[in-house]
Design a protein around this nucleic acid. Structure first.
Lengths: 230, 230
DNA sequence: AATATAAGGTGTGAAAATTACACCGTTAAA
DNA sequence: TTTAACGGTGTAATTTTCACACCTTATATT
């Protein structure tokens, strides 16, 4: 690879971990690079932060450009600033993540010129990624795992109405371990932020399960009480 | 203030929360600014990241320049990138924190030209800070509080040998609430990473307390087991 | 109609962790 | 000797966590 690439002095970028849950598996959105460096490699979707946009705005814009989704909360998790993490110059990148519902989503857009296509890839068998993106992934995924134990982040990955078995499957996919069915259900219901619906699951060839919704209001109330109590 | 200040396009900086514990109070290191903007205001110590240093290296350098301390671990906690957070241009700043022992420390150095002096200020009565530094402080302090519950970060603030009462006082200072003496001691000792010394406290006008050390080895062992068990 | 398949849904007892709570002992200074 | 100040200790009630197995329901198949 002997072409001469342009270099740059000091650039800010954002790289995104966009998680989805599909077919019982936790997946992440990767793009296949069209340009050097790392042409044809998989990489995390990312972009440069513009002069007139905040980090959070840039993260929202990038997610929108890649998936057509708006108004999701992208959350920052870490900033990566090794001197040689990018071969063309000094690029400091802020890692953001989002958890989204794959189902009911429009087709993934054809992405910007530097990416050939975007795919959902299971997190358990990621290929080598461009740059230091594997490290970025490990860092962010680790934080999400830990956060799962005290924040209701799983619900962003599920359809609005879901069964307890689906919820448990998602926890198992994120934590990568089996959970006990009875204890899981007992605990989840004890929080008091799940709303049982009259409606049941449809289209399954076995006994239909009850559907539940995550009740953000109740959650906020409980959470506020916890804060003021401490 | 009608002077014309220079402007810049895109700069990376680091701002530091340097915590210390003195006289039963949790304190933070502030500098008093010597230059515009925010001349005479208190601010967090910080500096620009150089082209050829990583974020972590920059954080270590800044701490060293300010305090003369080396080899402490500065930890990143959040990156702040609002467009107008700095009046002179686009400055994105990475927040780092460190917990250090005030006692036994050399005098605080006279700091770089932009700072008149550095002081230890109790966290419970902070003045208004320059830029968005109050927000940076709140963000970082909140993270440290939460981290205290599952990481042995408090020991960095204490002298190497300390009494359980001192340790409890520190927890109370960080969490800003009273703890039960018997339960606190029972729990701390149950972790198994405190080493009881033969030596006792000296120079107090009441019964001398036993001294303890934090045993990093034992902690590492316990922590590793927890990781592999999950 | 009977049967097979696949998941839904439920309770209890043991163990561990958390919480609330009060008094005597020791040291040095007055 | 007395006082002031902190050191140091145990128990019982409650809550949380964990391990564990079977019957029920709905659909598809024969």
């Amino acid at each position: 690879m002997e072409e001469k690439l342009p270099t740059f002095e000091s650039v800010f970028s954002i790289d995104c971990l966009i998680f989805g849950f599909e077919a019982g598996e936790l997946k992440i959105l990767l793009i296949e690079r069209n340009d050097e460096p790392f042409k044809d490699w998989f990489a995390l979707p990312g972009d440069i932060v513009k002069q007139d946009e905040s980090l959070d705005d840039a993260a929202d814009r990038i997610l929108y450009e890649l998936t057509g989704l708006r108004d999701l909360q992208m959350k920052q998790f870490h900033t990566f600033g090794e001197v040689n993490r990018h071969p063309q110059g000094r690029v400091i990148t802020v890692g953001y993540y989002a958890l989204i519902r794959i189902a009911g989503q429009k087709e993934l857009r054809p992405v910007s010129q530097y990416a050939r296509k975007a795919i959902w890839h299971p997190v358990n068998s990621l290929p080598k990624l461009a740059f230091d993106h594997t490290e970025i992934f490990n860092n962010g995924f680790g934080k999400i795992r830990r956060r799962l134990n005290y924040q209701p982040i799983a619900f962003d990955l599920l359809p609005e109405k879901f069964t307890l078995t689906q919820l448990q499957g998602l926890y198992e996919a994120i934590l990568n371990k089996k959970l006990d069915k009875r204890n899981f259900r007992k605990k989840m219901l004890s929080y008091g932020f799940l709303k049982e619906l009259v409606e049941k699951q449809k289209g399954v060839s076995y006994r239909a399960a009850k559907l539940y919704k995550f009740d953000r209001r109740k959650y906020a109330k409980i959470f506020q009480n916890e804060l003021t109590a401490s």
